[in-house]
Structures are given as structure tokens and as C-alpha cells.
Design a protein around this nucleic acid. Structure first.
Length: 492
RNA sequence: GGUUCCUUCGUCUAAUGGUUAGGACAGGAGAUUCUCAGUCUCUAAAUAGGGGUUCGAUUCCCCUAGGAACUACCA
């Protein structure tokens, strides 16, 4: 039987790291086993649903380059793949269970349930959950509720005796006593929409899902789902509960740990390949030593057996490392086009950039590439090129081990040497040597000469290398800034 | 509280019934004749604790401790 797996998110928020990790695992498992990857939108919660979330789902998967074989937009033989469009199916199956005596109508109001819950908490009752008030209603009682116009929910009859076991590829057998399973969970809400449990089981069956790969937070409801499959007389798929992605403190990764939405990472300038690579390495590994894995490689070598049991913490620093590595590996032209929006946003270049601005951006790639962790770093790295904000504090110009006098000299004579040699088209090495000689003469470290010049030209203590900066800026402008700095320093 | 699950360096992980318990990130030290970054070298760092089984256990079993998830007309 060929593999069919699905990613079934609920469009109630932006796609986050944990979610796309689940998507990735499903996708890679499908690809590596020659199966199908299906996308299904579980939008049965009308309260929390948002169009923005749905768009974000498509955009994020698209950005990551994850294509689904069946699902919304692309269609497929088991559609529709959006649960809100499958309304009638769930209703039909839920009513079938009622007819067969495996489920029942419940007319309890939210108010009664709330009161019940409060009492259970107050009395520290061991027994928590629904009290099965409506489990054995007579026809008369039902008719009375209907007359009152109460819209019922449908609840599953969960056995009070025995136990239910399901097998998980990663976890092994997981058993729960039936009396510990949520007593008679709601299958169909009073608005006619299914709850997760119902819709999920029906769709997984109808769509021929062979392996259910989902986060471990679903383990507790596994037995309930098995009960549902049994109630329908359907075969139970293979379960594979994925370890969760945690924050630094060991709790479920959430906003308070930092960015979690993939969109935020994209906006900061993370590359999709870095996200994919790093995220799949949380809770999975190829061999313990391979660090770099492309999407294409993972599509081939992903093995379910290598998935871990224990949850993994999300390490932002390691992601940064991956990202900086991928930036370096990336094509220059691609980096240039990735940098452009940040420069436009910063107001450094026009939108769209003029040819001459595009030239500057391209020239920026080489020196900037290996010092960016994220693409947005380019804004600070290139600020000196587009805006001129001279440093007025003379102390910034003075390198460690140097002093004001020597710094003046370094600026004056170093500048002369630098620009005359640049005009003579001397090599960087030759100029460097000349400046080194000057530093020896002044009895200061090489940096005592370089730092003031660099600060004068780049307006910053931290910058791209001097020669790169000058060639980016142009000799004229660099010289202008240097003389200005010299004037300023001379007055001190 | 109840139920279920988890436990190798700070973090992600590798390994085998017998190894100096390996790699990577982060950290520390040094090098790199321009800052920052990068690169290179070196370094420190783990089998949660206690019992078994065994000639031998990080690996198999049990207990304890710690952590997590779930416990909705949310998924």
C-alpha cells in the first residue's frame, strides 16, 4: 500500500515553527517513500478562523518550496480538502453513529456544563468531565428539549470499562483505560460543525491516509480516535507522534521565547533552506554528523526510524549559524535581490532601484555576504554608503594604544598615502604595506592608522573592510569624508 | 489533582552489552600584519539518581526524581 500522509493545520494563526516542522516531516516521509503528501485545511473553528491565516499557510509552504500532491488549489480525488466545505459529510457520519447507538444527542447548555465543571473543581472530584446527563434520554425528554428549540450536540459514547491501545511507530504501544478517556466528547457541535476529533478521523479515512504524523501533544487523544475508527468499523492508520519543539525553558515553543512564525523569520531575512535544514534537525538526524541537508537530499534520505522520542529545544543561535552559512553559499545575484527590499525599506534606494543603485547593491554583495547572519543585517552594514552621518566624537577615531596626536597624523599622512596610491592604482597589498610602515613610524599598531581612516570613511567603528568601503563609496567621496574628519579632529 | 509520555555535554544529536562516549551550535583560549565578522587551531563540557540482570552496562528491567503534554461546543 503506498504511503499517503497529510499536513492538516487549522487556519487560526500564522504558520509557526512547530507546524511547519510537522509539515516537513510529513512531506519528506511522503517523498522518500514514494507516497503522496496531502494538504488539508481544518477550519472547523469559525471563531478563530481568519483569511490571513489561510493565506499565510499557502504563502509559507510556497516560500519553503513544499508542494502538496493533493489539497486546496491543486485539488485531487478526495476533495474538497477544506473541511468547511465537507460540512454534510460529518453530519451524515455523526448521525449514523447516533442511529447505531454509538453516539447520542446532548442538550446540555454551555451554562450547565460550566456549572458542572466548577462543582467538580470545588469538590476536588476525581471524576472530571461531562456527567453523561443526556446519555439515556427518553423520547419524551428529547422531544421536550427540541420543543424548547435547543440545538443539540452529538456526543460519542465512550465505554466506561476496558481499555484502548494504539500502536505508535515511535512510541510503541500506548494504552489508556477507557474510563480515563474524556467522557463522551462532542463530535458535532450545536452549530452543525464537527469537532476536530470527528472531522479528523473521517477525513483521514476518506482520504486514505496511511500514516498519521502529528505532534506528540495529540497522544492523549489517540485512544479516543481509535474508538472512533472502531465505531465506524474502519481500519486504524499507523500513528507516528512527532516530538515537540520546545523553547529554551522546556515548554512548548511560543511567542514569549522569540519569533515563532515562519513569516517573521522570512521578514528578518532567513533563507528557506536554512529554516528547512535546521528545523528538520530538531527531533531527527541522519547520522549524527551530517549538518547540511538540502530539501532535495531530505526528500530522498528521510527515514521515519530516525525520528526521536524526546522533545527538542529550538536553538535560535544554531539557526543563525545555518542561515549565515547558507547566505555564504547562495548565489550573489540572488543575495542582491534578497537585499534589495531591505534597502528600499530603509529609504536607501528608490523603489524600484535605479540601474546605478542596483550596481551599488550588487557591489555590496561580496564584502557583505560573509558578515550577515540574516539578510536584514545589510541595512546597518551598508548605511554609510547611502547616508552620511559623520562621527563627531574624536575618541571613536583613536584606536587602542594610540592618542589624539598620532591619530591626527595617521589621518593626515595616512590619507595622503592612501589616496595617492589609490590614484596610482596600486594594489591593496601595497597600500596596506605603506600604511603599516606609517604605523611603525608612529610606533602604534596597524590599527592605529586604519581605525581613524575607517571611522572617517564609514562613519562607524564597525564596518566593512576599508578598501571595500572605499571602492563602494568612490574615491572622491571617501576623500571628502576623510578631510572633513581631519578638520574636525584638528580642532580638538 | 488525574492520565499519558520523555530523560547522553548549556543546546541539537551519534554510538555499542566491552570506545579515550563522537560530531555540530553556543562558550573559553590563541592565531589571522585593518575594526567587526569570518576563517583556522586548541579547549572545557554529558550518559538524572538508586537498585537489579550480566564477566561487563550509557545500552536490558525496576524504582525514584525531574520535565512535558493533555484534561473545551480549540485544534
Amino acid at each position: 500500500m503506498s504511503v499517503r500522509v497529510r499536513y492538516a493545520p487549522s487556519p487560526t494563526g500564522l504558520q509557526h515553527i512547530g507546524g511547519i516542522r510537522t509539515a516537513l516531516f510529513n512531506y519528506f516521509f511522503a517523498k522518500s517513500s514514494g507516497g503522496k503528501f496531502i494538504l488539508r485545511v481544518e477550519d472547523t473553528d469559525r471563531e478563530r478562523y481568519s483569511d490571513e491565516s489561510l493565506n499565510d499557510l499557502y504563502e509559507t509552504l510556497d516560500w519553503l518550496g513544499i508542494k502538496w500532491d493533493e489539497g486546496p488549489v491543486v485539488g485531487g480525488p478526495c476533495g474538497p480538502y477544506i473541511q468547511s466545505e465537507r460540512f454534510d459529510i460529518y453530519k451524515k457520519y455523526a448521525e449514523q453513529l447516533v442511529k447505531e447507538g454509538k453516539a447520542y444527542y446532548c442538550y446540555c447548555t454551555p451554562e450547565r456544563l460550566e456549572k458542572l465543571r466548577e462543582e467538580q473543581i470545588k469538590n476536588k472530584s476525581e471524576y472530571q468531565g461531562y456527567d453523561r446527563h443526556c446519555a439515556n434520554l427518553t423520547e419524551e425528554e428529547r422531544a421536550e428539549y427540541e420543543r424548547q428549540g435547543i440545538k443539540p450536540v452529538i456526543r460519542l459514547k465512550v465505554p466506561t470499562e476496558g481499555k484502548t491501545t494504539f500502536h505508535d511507530v515511535i512510541m510503541g504501544d500506548i494504552t489508556r483505560k477507557n474510563k480515563d478517556i474524556s467522557p463522551d466528547p462532542i463530535l458535532l457541535k450545536s452549530d452543525g460543525f464537527p469537532t476536530y476529533h470527528l472531522a479528523n478521523v473521517i477525513d483521514d479515512h476518506l482520504m486514505g491516509i496511511t500514516h498519521i504524523m502529528r505532534a506528540q501533544e495529540w497522544i492523549p487523544s489517540g485512544p479516543l480516535h481509535v474508538l472512533l475508527y472502531n465505531a465506524f468499523g474502519w481500519e486504524v492508520p499507523t500513528y507516528c507522534h512527532l516530538p515537540m519543539v520546545m523553547g529554551k525553558d522546556g515548554q512548548k515553543l511560543s511567542k514569549r521565547h522569540g519569533s515563532t512564525a515562519v513569516r517573521e523569520f522570512r521578514e528578518k531575512g532567513y533563507l528557506p533552506e536554512a529554516i528547512i535544514n535546521y528545523v528538520t534537525l530538531v527531533g531527527w538526524s541522519l547520522d549524527g554528523s551530517t549538518e547540511f541537508l538540502s530539501k532535495e537530499q531530505l526528500e530522498k534520505c528521510f527515514k521515519m526510524e530516525n525520528i526521536h522520542k524526546n522533545p527538542g529545544k529550538f536553538d535560535y543561535k544554531k539557526l543563525d549559524w545555518f542561515n549565515s552559512q547558507y547566505i555564504r553559499m547562495a548565489d550573489d545575484e540572488r543575495i542582491a535581490s534578497l537585499m534589495t527590499p531591505y534597502l528600499v525599506n530603509a529609504g536607501f534606494v528608490s523603489n524600484p532601484p535605479r540601474d546605478e543603485e542596483m550596481g551599488k547593491i550588487r557591489a555590496l554583495v561580496k564584502p557583505a555576504k560573509e558578515r550577515m547572519k540574516v539578510i536584514s543585517d545589510i541595512v546597518e552594514l551598508s548605511r554609510f554608503l547611502f547616508v552620511d552621518e559623520p562621527v563627531m566624537d574624536e575618541n571613536v577615531y583613536i584606536a587602542k594604544g594610540s592618542d589624539l596626536e598620532k591619530t591626527k597624523t595617521a589621518l593626515e599622512r595616512g590619507g595622503e598615502i592612501l589616496f595617492s596610491m589609490l590614484r596610482e592604482k596600486k594594489s591593496d597589498e601595497e597600500i596596506e604595506t605603506a600604511l603599516m610602515n606609517l604605523s611603525q613610524e608612529l610606533e602604534i599598531k596597524v590599527n592605529g592608522v586604519f581605525q581613524p581612516i575607517r571611522v572617517a570613511i564609514t562613519n562607524s567603528q564597525v564596518s566593512l573592510p576599508l578598501f571595500d568601503s572605499i571602492s563602494l563609496l568612490g574615491i572622491e567621496e571617501a576623500e571628502r569624508r576623510l578631510s572633513r574628519a581631519l578638520e574636525m579632529i584638528k580642532e580638538k
